[in-house]
Design a protein around this nucleic acid. Structure first.
Lengths: 167, 167
DNA sequence: TTATAGTTTCAAAACTTTTTGAAAGTAAAA
DNA sequence: TTTTACTTTCAAAAAGTTTTGAAACTATAA
């Protein structure tokens, strides 16, 4: 296997992985391509290498910038915009965790807080509802706290923690 | 807010959450409905409460059984099948982690192992590729190990670990 | 100012996923 | 055996998502 083939394989698989995480294929593939690139790339290079349209490339690059995973760069004397990716996977994961927290954990916790105020009555159904939602809230809030701490920590802390757990 | 409203809200939000985790809306909603139910439910009850078709209900219930999140039950003297959900969120999470590990972590690790064998040459691109993929593999394998341990542990262990980290 | 080189937008097309519902299948009851 | 009560399947329809490409926009250069 040569570099081109390996690169292609990795980009494809990163795209598949993205899809099952609610990130669209093009977005994940652009991210993979930029992570692997030693230099920043232009929209045209991305279009060419991934065989996607200008609109698609532009939209998804903007989404990646929005997620804080890709950055723009201007080169002196050049009119084109260049793009490069955050390569430190720890930073990538922190960024993703932060975004997903905002998009997923916050809304479900809001709903859990709302329903915890509801007048549920004393039926079996009401009791079960209270019990299940309280349980869920307990675990989700622990997770939430964990993400909060992790997002403020550096990779060494995290790796140390994981190693300790695993050993 | 009364029970019906609270229940409806929670089910809706669980559906939304599911979608961003690659689990389809109906599947997540059925799961929510069954988690909240003090008693097991029939296909007809699920169809009625969620306003979905028989085929949809049947397919997604089978998928949930496949994921190990829902179980069938036969009541004596009854011909209908009853369904109930795993309610302990810790078990739910372990089950989901196991499934996703199989579907996502294993394939990406396979690809990483494959490309690590590639003849990449000594170009900047080759070196960058090696560096980035090695980094990714290091973090993913730590995660993988963590999931493995977590899946064998009970909720108390996990909560204790999290608490220690967070405090 | 006008031309040029680039970026952004968005409606329509292509594609993917989910849902429906009716028909086929299964097994207990009559 | 036939009927009845249920479950399963799956092709087609609906819904949702992504992608395209051309037109509109922006900003620099001539």
């Amino acid at each position: 296997m040569d570099l081109q083939e390996a690169k292609y394989k990795f980009i494809q698989e990163w795209g598949v992985l993205g899809s099952s995480w609610g990130i669209n294929r093009a977005m994940a593939q652009i991210h993979a391509l930029l992570m692997l690139a030693p230099e920043s790339k232009t929209t045209d290079e991305v279009m060419e290498e991934l065989k996607i349209s200008r609109g698609n490339a532009n939209m998804n690059m903007r989404a990646l910038i929005d997620w804080g995973l890709v950055f723009k760069e201007y080169k002196p004397g050049e009119r084109k915009e260049y793009f490069y990716a955050e390569k430190d996977l720890w930073n990538v994961m922190k960024q993703i965790a932060k975004e997903r927290r905002k998009r997923e954990i916050v809304p479900i916790r809001d709903v859990l807080a709302e329903v915890s105020e509801a007048e549920l009555g004393n039926t079996a159904e009401g009791k079960e509802f209270k019990k299940v939602t309280k349980d869920i809230d307990a675990i989700i809030s622990k997770f939430d706290g964990f993400i909060d701490i992790a997002a403020k920590s550096d990779q060494n802390w995290f790796l140390k923690v994981l190693s300790k757990l695993i050993k």
